[in-house]
Design a binder for these strands. Structure first.
Lengths: 204, 204
DNA sequence: CATTGTAAGTGACACGGTGTCATAAGTCAA
DNA sequence: TTGACTTATGACACCGTGTCACTTACAATG
């Protein structure tokens, strides 16, 4: 978190700084962004910057957090609008976020946030399952028994693979982030698979 | 991709370099890793390193790709073992990966790979929905109509939220990575929600 | 209003990492 | 032996980070 000193700053100076930061983080992802650019843009001396923030990341996650707070607000609205229907609310929420981002800078900021994270790593990971150019194996989809799946065409199958990839990925993250035992991690993932299989909603 | 020069190297030298690289990338995530350490460890001159690789990332993704190739092999085995049962295969696969990683260096390499990516960003994102300390709002779960959901207890609800978070996150990534139109992105996400709702499997 | 103590501001600088480039060394065929 | 090409090498220019000794601002106090 930014230091108290930062919050004591006159409104205008603080805004100038945040503005310059948002500009820089919209230009490039976190690890390519530089404090040098932010202070040049905002005219803040280098020493002052480090008076306010521990480092680049400190400022970045402060900004990101402001975005997520707004998102939470949107999700809540969606939930109320949809009378507590969870998936309906998420659908509404997703649309709201993407349609509402008309400010180019916001779009780029979010783009960098989502991409930096995922582009290289998760995409490389999901390529395991979908990329036909991956060496040594025929397309893995040939081995899937589609007859048991709730799908109409190949496109649906891709959706299913995407969903499972996202979920298994998150399970790996959780296991490693929280140092779960193998048993605990396997149990959690099994539960997720069960829910995916049967559906998140009760049968009508 | 590494240059041909790298593959022309004598086996031993190449192994020494890859070994040093894996050690460094196991020690810290990609953006904290340094070429300096890798060449010090392997005794390769700096100039040579840049003869073989464009940069740090070039080498990193080459290593990561070797991991994913192994994973693809494992997934294929699981699929065959489970007679094409998709979710069964993924369950088997997940267990195989986590139980099989007994080499401490491998574990750390994967840990850094999964975490670097996700820890900060996606966790910050999922906190929107789960973190009670997030400002300004009562716990969002209070607004969810649980009666429609296929759950027995609060733990199940958390699983459901985790699943949806993973899927919506991936949808944001796809939208921004591939510059999907809002309509296309919304349609894809809607399809995912439909699948989640009804379940990935046909009813028995 | 001078004094003094505390908080904030500042920029030069030491440090460390990156990628390049001029030069040296190796290889091989004529 | 020579020439043409490929590979090896490490010194170096460049750039960004975070710190620190010093300055300035400001508020409380006698």
């Amino acid at each position: 978190m930014p230091k108290q000193t930062f919050f004591n700053l006159p409104e205008k100076k603080r805004q100038t700084l945040l503005n310059a930061a948002e500009k820089e983080f919209s230009r490039v992802p976190l690890y390519e962004a530089s404090v040098a650019n932010i202070i040049k843009e905002s005219g803040i001396p280098r020493g002052s910057f480090y008076q306010y923030f521990d480092d680049k990341e400190d400022l970045y996650y402060y900004l990101l957090n402001r975005y997520t707070v707004k998102m939470k607000e949107l999700l809540l609205q969606s939930l109320q609008k949809q009378d507590g229907d969870l998936l309906g609310a998420f659908g509404d929420f997703f649309a709201k976020v993407i349609y509402q981002q008309t400010n180019e800078r916001n779009v780029k900021f979010l783009k960098n946030a989502f991409l930096h994270v995922a582009q290289k790593m998760e995409l490389s990971f999901s390529r395991i399952f979908l990329d036909k150019s991956h060496p040594r194996f025929e397309d893995i989809l040939d081995y899937v028994d589609s007859s048991r799946l709730n799908i109409r065409d190949e496109k649906d199958l891709h959706h299913i693979i995407q969903i499972i990839t996202a979920v298994i990925f998150r399970n790996f993250v959780e296991k490693y982030a929280n140092n779960l035992t193998n048993e605990e991690a396997a149990a959690r993932f099994h539960k997720d698979l069960q829910l995916l299989k049967d559906g998140l909603y009760k049968e009508k």
